[in-house]
Design a protein around this nucleic acid. Sequence first.
DNA 1: CTACCAGTCCTTTTT
DNA 2: GGACTGGTAG
Length: 783
Amino acid sequence: MPDLLSNLNPEQHAAVTLLNEPALILAGAGSGKTRVIITRIAWLIQQGLASPATVLAVTFTNKAAREMMSRLSALLPIDTRGMWIGTFHGLCNRMLRAHHRDAGLPATFQILDTADQLSAIKRLMKGLNIDDEKYPAKNIQYFINNAKEQGLRPEDMDATENFNRKFVELYEVYDQQCQREGVVDFSELLLRCYELLAHNPPLRAHYQARFCHTLVDEFQDTNKLQYAWLKLIAGQNNTIFAVGDDDQSIYAFRGANVGNMRDFEHEFSVRNLIKLEQNYRSHGHILDAANQLIANNSRRLGKNLRTDAGHGEPVRVYESTTDSQEAGWIVEEIKALISTGTSRSEIAILYRSNAQSRTIEHALVNAGIVYRVYGGLRFFERQEVKHALAYLRLIDNPNDDTAFARVVNFPTRGIGARSIEQLADAARLYNCSMAAAIPYIAGKAGSSLAAFANLIGKMRAETQQMSLPETVEYVVRTSGLSEFYQNEREGQDRLENLQELVNAAAAFVSEEGYGMDTPARSIPLRPGATSTPELAVATDAPNTVVLDAPGIADPTQNPDTMTPLAGFLSHASLEAGDNQAQAGQEAVQLMTVHAAKGLEFTAVFITGLEEGLFPHENSAMESDGLEEERRLMYVAITRAKERLYLSFAQSRILHGQTRYNIRSRFFDELPQETLKWLTPKVEAGARWGGRSDNAGYGRDWFARPGYTGAASTTPAQLPAFANEQRAAEAGFRVGQQVFHTKFGEGTITALEGGGTDAKAQVKFKRHGEKWLALAVAKLQAVE
DNA sequence: CTACCAGTCCTTTTT
DNA sequence: GGACTGGTAG
């Protein structure tokens, strides 16, 4: 029996072996967090305190889930495939598939990704003749997802206010449309699963009895709905083991609620909050920098990272005149690093926003340094792949109008916009899907549409007995997609991606343990499974737990509640695939700070450390915005193992305009003794009251009087700041909320001039951006 | 239906 | 600066 505990430090040991109480583990960066979770699962099983079937482990990304499974099976000889380890969305999908009837969904329900959802909303709005200017589809999408993440259905929402009513109405119609089409979006997956458990006591009791240990990774990133789901599924006898780091919460903008950590601590009366503060990644100076920076945040749970590694090298700071000079300097440093033996893949260049990568890439290309950019299009998001998937979806579910609209005329088959509009009208009239409305269309348009329906019907019939890879291959060929891309000049890559899709299907089949010949569209029979899984009672399977609600399917004993095709389509939506340009190369790594979370590198460059960029100017408008930016900086710093570079530029071209920025306030928040300035440090001079707390935040975005910058700063560019300051004297500032009697609410985005010439640029919620003379316009401050 | 042009937007992103 | 969208001309 392997000794799982021998190499743990005391805090890790305590966390791993904690028994019969809810646990909150405050796990600092590089403190062995993943290791603790995996070791705990293994230890619980090894000690007989849990079986693989009674453990529920939740992560945010598929990558994290995969890592958990592979490291776990390395520790213990168990098959992790049947275990409930996965992402929130993946697990909810699994549960909804198993209980689709109770959840009110068809067995073949499909998952809309973000882009699908947006096009579904656009289609809906077009049909209702809703002004896209007044109600942008993106805003509707945001509203809907946000509502769902708060656990709110349309009927739960306040629709009394005029403006709000339209949103709520659209939310309601959108949900009806999804229901009719048999599709669910990402947030629906979670909310539907939550409601399934909330409204179905026997089912809830079943799962609550089944899971004795729930482990949650990156708990600080959970939103309200996810937390509610966890509480629901965990029930009484279950001990939740929540691992997270409030200082690394950087996803508030997508609904993450750091407050869940504090709430958990109180609601579950956590007795021992265990802090993992021993860092195994970074040298001392780097940690000192991170610790002192993050100490500027308020409302922290509080921790301080420490290391045995010694101080190491100082943090190097570089000031450049321009962004391209910054890039040039980075290239020189990287050359030096490489020549002294640092592997390219151990060097990372981080930036706050993607727009910054171009200049750096340019310099790297010129210097002939191989690099790799994270982010961008992912495999299952490519248009040719999405087209092929749309055909596959139609085979499984002809009512999926999103898929239908996508490929009804791709490749072109003489079905124009007018025909499609006609069809959509008929579908609305008869309250059916577009496919079902085809018989109602007469004339030439009708016959082209009928031909398309026949094509899909033929595909459905002919793939009946085919395996999944065969089906995919067949669809790519029969749909005309391969022919289309063959004839297109730039179609070669797309053709290859379609072939890759066939390979992906084959890989999926083998990873999921289906036989290669299993028909793609029947539920495979494996030992322990029955042909009607949702009615099956799993009493004789291994690791069986007592089922207190007989008749409830248990997806762990009966994982085959999905056909291979449905599984593959879910997989394509839930796991969009690699977003790395060229994987596996020995290359310098370029990515945003967000993308770097969880990774580590020997040498790290944090670039563009300027006011307005990092911290980002938009964050000034959000409450808690600066603190989130600071956490982001904290994440960035703690990626570095041995060497950390911080750089900023006096001027930078952004969106085609040259901006003159001053260095980030974060420099003032770092311990000066850990910094080594490669360029002379220029004192910033007195700031407005010298405040760096939230109260003064937003006031001094682009203007700190007294800042002279380096000698090369063009004086002609500086009056812009001076102008803003004078306008600011009138009592307004950038980022401020204002009210105008005619235009309503808005936010000041720029200020110019002074005295009687003072003007403010205001972005109104409903009327766009306008320049207003302060002497004329009656602007009221909203605070 | 395609091709081209003008207008618009631009923080971060996983599922 | 550049990617994407929507509109219109051919």
